[in-house]
Write a protein that binds this DNA or RNA. Structure first.
Lengths: 127, 127, 127, 127
DNA sequence: GTGGTCTAGACCACC
DNA sequence: GTGGTCTAGACCACA
């Protein structure tokens, strides 16, 4: 895992876990890697992972059993989707639309960029 | 002016100035409010405004005449537009498109949200 | 059995057993379920149940006959009652009274809540 | 400040702050001691105080200004009161009433204990 | 000066 | 083994 600057590592980790659950890699009731395992695999301090997991537990995405581990909570996927959608629609999209107006970018142009993005994604998948 | 958490205040201020110029509120050669005036009006430490103006000067959007004040630079509007567009296309849009895929949101749905945004904007303007 | 977070599971189990004895579900000399049986029924590691039983044995509530099982000790019910009362009066009530003052809650209001609690209990019993 | 065992220090600190606000020692908009100041005064590591403040910020009791400090949030006192009352009525009181029934303790007896508590408090105040 | 984050390392209770 | 907490110390961005 590569960390971008500009966002804290623990948030990048919680996003990463959250997206795994969104994609269905881990489903309700699955035990996810322990704090220590994740710490080793992403090469950060266990404390940092603890913080990432705590965020997800607060959001109702993870659940933990003392001395056992962390699990995808009941309704965890829905919680993750709801959270991501809410952040997207309430924070990101308004900013995007506002910028479009400022730049005088039309919806058609946005669609064009979207299609370009999709094709680029496709080609990367073939690497 | 309201400050969102999560982004530094000086960047929020420089964005605010930059958008004023993009909208044409201030045009090439206009003197913009002094650091002190802005500091008072947005209720912030003058150091913070200084930093915001410095960013804009670096980008070629503002120009400083010592002892006189800050002015919209020659080509300032174009510089602001270019900067905003670059940030938008390189940073924000890829993130947006990625999230759309993750949420399974179609381009049609995005257009729908865009239209809703536009109508909301319209109605707010009538307040 | 549902486990609340915030208190260790073994203590929740020992409370649960203790209350069974207080209510008279199990009386002096009764053999209570084996560690394994309880472990299965409450879906917990046998080690955890062992610890819970050990606590109760320490308090003189249970008695162990090696190879046979655990029994409600002579005077077990009284021991359980004394323990619970002590914990209640020394730990819980002072905290409760303190919070009442902090919230400005009167004794009358407390009585009101008590009556509501009792009626709710009644109605649940009819389910 | 003395810390009891059984509850984590950071929660004891957040309770302490919360009660200060409930009592009106600090009111809306007041700046509370910085993380470092509190860390010194209660003799714990700044990280621990950070965690306590973060809890209160999550609850809407505190609010922070980057680089300036923590403040009692708008509606902070109400948030603190609501939180405490909710925890009290939903968690603590049901447990109390349940124990009363188990011990066969009457409301009259509880009142008696309450009066004793109040008089003890009074006499302590005269020390 | 402020808060925010991260690391390293320790100890604990618990399962 | 698991997670939870705490410390010490560091570095950073920010006001």
């Amino acid at each position: 895992m590569q960390f971008a600057s500009g966002q804290s590592i623990y948030l990048q980790i919680s996003d990463y876990i959250s997206e795994k659950i969104l994609r269905g890699d881990w489903v309700e009731g699955d035990r996810i890697p322990s704090i220590r395992e994740t710490a080793v695999s992403v090469e950060v301090n266990p404390n940092t992972v603890t913080r990432a997991y705590a965020v997800l537990q607060d959001e109702g995405i993870l659940q933990n059993q003392r001395g056992v581990g962390y699990f995808v909570a009941a309704g965890g996927r829905e919680a993750a989707a709801a959270l991501k959608r809410r952040e997207f629609e309430e924070d990101e999209l308004p900013r995007v639309f506002r910028t479009m107006r400022l730049l005088g970018m039309s919806l058609a142009e946005l669609e064009h960029l979207y299609e370009r993005y999709v094709t680029e994604e496709e080609s990367e998948r073939h690497d």
